[in-house]
């Protein structure tokens, strides 16, 4: 027990996790007896074809959905609903349009009962961290898609979670913004020393961010696969090893 307490927090353990959906009266297993450990401070990226259950898995980790079988443990404690040690970044920024950037970023802290002055001080730090220092008083409608998503990221970081869960966080952004934001995410992950679980359908993004990539099976017979991405950081997309990793992933999907 002493060992567990002294260790860095933010460990995710998935045990025999199953989840199925009823679609048109037919039950479809999206997750079947999944077992996985995410180490504290690790960046795990989940990829898979659409319908493979990657978003479902993330929502179960977030406590927004319940699994049919199995358990999720965070630092040894079973997940029951949402929790303060986890924060979620969605595909959409999900900003409250009537609050300024500052108001949106302090939202999570205020909900948790932290005094406004302290909340604002912490929020301003994270607004600067995501490069929006000059926009603290702007309203969401005045922001571009990339800027709005940065606000969403700042809001999640401000509550200082042990685990960041990201559901296709850059999926709605244009290609150029996406690359910049991938670099920012990698930097933030490094600086904040947080466990990250990222769902994406962008294989290059997976290789850029991941310590390990989890590939969810597309069809019934396929198995879940885990791939190590042991490349030095910051990563260089044009480097030969990076390209090879990306090609290996493409092959997993029968695309190369």
């Amino acid at each position: 027990m002493t060992i567990a307490q002294s260790a860095q927090r933010g460990e995710v353990s998935i045990r025999d996790l199953s989840k199925s959906f009823a679609i048109n009266g037919r039950s479809i297993n999206v997750l079947k007896s999944l077992n996985l450990d995410v180490k504290p401070g690790e960046c795990l990226v989940i990829v898979g074809a659409s319908g493979s259950g990657k978003t479902t898995l993330l929502r179960v980790l977030a406590g927004l959905e319940q699994a049919d079988g199995g358990r999720v443990l965070i630092d040894g404690a079973p997940v029951r609903g949402v929790g303060a040690e986890r924060a979620v970044i969605f595909q959409e920024p999900r900003l409250l349009p009537w609050l300024t950037v500052l108001g949106n970023v302090t939202f999570g802290l205020e909900v948790r009962g932290i005094a406004r002055a302290e909340a604002e001080e912490r929020a301003r730090g994270y607004i600067r961290l995501v490069g929006l220092g000059d926009f603290a008083d702007a309203y969401p409608r005045q922001l571009s898609g990339g800027m709005a998503q940065r606000v969403g990221i700042a809001r999640a970081l401000t509550v200082q979670p042990e685990i960041l869960l990201l559901d296709e966080p850059l999926g709605a952004l244009d290609a150029m913004t996406k690359i910049t934001m991938q670099e920012e995410l990698a930097r933030i992950w490094h600086e904040e020393n947080v466990t990250m679980v990222v769902v994406t359908h962008d294989l290059e993004e997976a290789v850029y961010l991941a310590d390990r990539v989890l590939i969810l099976p597309k069809e019934k017979g396929d198995t879940t696969r885990l791939i190590d991405v042991d490349l030095p950081r910051p990563r260089d997309r044009s480097e030969i090893r990076f390209v090879r990793h990306r090609e290996a992933l493409l092959r997993e999907f029968g695309l190369h």
Binding site: R86, A87, R94, L96, G108, V111, R112, V159
Partner: peptide, 20 residues
């Protein structure tokens, strides 16, 4: 989706009503 976002931060039903 905004309501779900608020829930993720642990907002109670009353807080969700008042703030969202």
């Amino acid at each position: 989706k905004l309501i779900e976002m608020a829930r993720v931060y642990g907002a109670s039903r009353l807080t969700v009503f008042r703030r969202v």
